[in-house]
Design a protein around this nucleic acid. Structure first.
Lengths: 350, 350
DNA sequence: CTCCGATCTGACACCGGTGTCCAAAACGGA
DNA sequence: TCCGTTTTGGACACCGGTGTCAGATCGGAG
């Protein structure tokens, strides 16, 4: 049926013209009500609003998108970091978007591919996105911010440190949070503490490493290069990085892993060698993903408030649209907190 | 700038009229090329296609959506099951949608809320979705299928068993997969095998339970009601269900948990009581989520091919659109396979 | 009572595609 | 060569909103 039947019992398919007719005004006036135009007689507005309420009319988003040159879609662009993080970001963003006219469109891309930037640009342009949320490590690339500006698309960059355009950022203070965690290890008496760093090119990896180094230097503990192992934020990389640390002699009495996946890998590697956690080795991770409480012993970790950050990012994008333009122009900073579980204890005697 | 500048260096913003002019035909002819209309001169078609290729023109989705009354968006509707499953579904669907004109819009809803159905309907209607993928347990509700039909929206239901409308389903054969897993336990010599069932109202829970019962009855093993504990597909429910099973005397020598989260809970509970896995207790889970290989010992589980199912679901929706209408009209069935790790061993002597 | 400016309102074109329908072109047969 | 039939192409209206701008309305001042 090419022509939509007007008699669909369930779908009246109201148009703006119907509303205009029912309210006895022109469609343009209805449009003004919908778009909250200020130059409108209060009585007229109320009359139209009443009709809209009674009929349950909602404007056709496609038509608006065409006329406005902008859709009511928020894009979530990410590469391939932590799965759990993506899910939590989605959760947060969806919470903010719930009961608004916006929808969330997810878009994984392949950092590494030569045409990532073109992909992202065409995604934004084609869909006429209202705004995009960019996840790390992609968010650290200024080219994306430039593309968004050029295409007139709002954007928010998630990150671990404020970059060049603060008003578009939602950040967590990873450095201080990690320093806090490492201070906790030091307080317990640890002096030989290993670090499993995140991959090069990730700002979060850099920040976390700096936090680690900060806490150690504060306490006057020297940090031989050998106590730093490279990881890729994956479980497997955590296992092998841990193995190289455990090969040291004397071996570290505690290990800070730059994320939970790798911390789980540390635990696994320790068990493979029959090393008791936390009695012979203390572990701290980062993220507070579910895995930390499912392994044995449950892992002490840093809780990264990613859901809240996702919510803030989405709000920042649509804030002006829903009339909450509060702190939209400043960077939003979130602080992570240490969650103490059972993977930390004082170092073994001797 | 209300009026889009035509001089944007980077964004030529081609319209169908430009293409028509360049190719020396009318816009309608260009439209015919785009929509693969069969009544068109081959030479003309090629000429237009060449221009499109050269200019990199892509039609404005919003305008098409308005004219066609249908958007190029695929909705992913889910309640709140397994997080990992959602992620994998997304992965699969996105793979299928990659390099097509379709985008994926995710939409969690609240089963339980009185107006779920209205929410879903308005989501479909408002966005003029091309199609929706419905995840379990929501997919088991026939009302959703009815809504989709009424609104003329394609849909695919993911599930653990073929329901009333097979052509709209992508299913896995959980029953047989679980029976297979339990047969494996029986072969190892287990006779007292506990089941941690999934929540009532989930078809998957029912199928998995039936598979469990099937394998036992095949082997002539009786199943006292006490060996079946209720779970909610969550880690915590797995812990407490396991505790109730371990309180039995004699206690089971093996436990099948209806998903991995609960299986991880079983492992945790066993450890709390100092029960060795697998020497004193064997465990099998279901899903093959990452957690199975991160805990100690790694869990034997049933690999649920959810990524492939997600891909199939998306393909089923867009298949006709991209000219691959192969097996679109039949239900697609996927088989799960047993993954043997280290949580199963013969029962302890005596 | 009339006139004026400030406020509202509505007719109309437009966003960028698609469906309809008819005219023009191409082709084959008499 | 001419005509009828089948392709192919194009003018026009339309999808459902929004921007523009001129005209209508209203209240207050002269």
């Amino acid at each position: 049926m090419p022509k939509p039947t007007q008699d669909d019992a369930n779908a009246p398919k109201l148009t703006i013209n119907d509303i205009a007719a029912l309210a006895g005004v022109s469609k343009k006036t209805v449009s003004r009500v919908i778009n909250q135009s200020p130059l409108l007689n209060q009585a007229t507005r109320e009359k139209v609003e009443a009709v809209i309420r009674d009929t349950g009319y909602t404007p056709n988003p496609q038509a608006r998108a065409l006329a406005l040159g902008r859709n009511f879609l928020i894009g979530l662009v990410y590469d391939n970091p932590n799965q759990q993080m993506i899910l939590n970001m989605q959760r947060g963003a969806l919470e903010a978007l719930h009961d608004t006219e916006f929808e969330l469109v997810i878009r994984p891309v392949d950092r590494g591919s030569a045409k990532v930037m073109d992909d992202i640009r065409s995604f934004i342009v084609r869909q006429r996105l209202y705004g995009v949320i960019i996840l790390p490590p992609l968010s650290e690339n200024d080219a994306i911010a430039r593309i968004c500006s050029e295409e007139g698309c709002r954007y928010v960059r998630m990150g671990s440190a404020v970059l060049d355009d603060p008003e578009h950022m939602v950040v967590s203070n990873d450095r201080e949070a990690v320093a806090e965690a490492v201070r906790h290890l030091i307080q317990q008496g640890h002096k030989r503490i290993g670090l499993i760093a995140g991959p090069h090119g990730f700002r979060s990896a850099k920040e976390r490493r700096e936090g680690f180094e900060l806490a150690l230097s504060e306490a006057g503990i020297s940090l031989p290069r050998s106590l730093i192992a490279d990881g890729q934020y994956t479980f497997e990389s955590g296992v092998s990085a841990c193995e190289s640390l455990l090969d040291l002699s004397p071996r570290p009495t505690a290990i800070f892993a730059s994320n939970d996946e790798m911390a789980a890998g540390v635990l696994y590697a320790a068990r493979l060698r029959g090393i008791e956690v936390p009695d012979q080795l203390s572990i701290i991770g980062f993220d507070d993903t579910p895995i930390t409480s499912r392994v044995w012993p449950p892992l002490t970790t840093v809780r990264w408030p990613i859901v809240a950050m996702g919510r803030a990012a989405a709000l920042k994008l649509i804030g002006t649209a829903i009339g909450e333009g509060a702190d939209v122009s400043e960077p939003s900073t979130f602080t992570s907190t240490l969650i103490r579980r059972a993977s930390v204890a004082p170092p073994p005697q001797g």
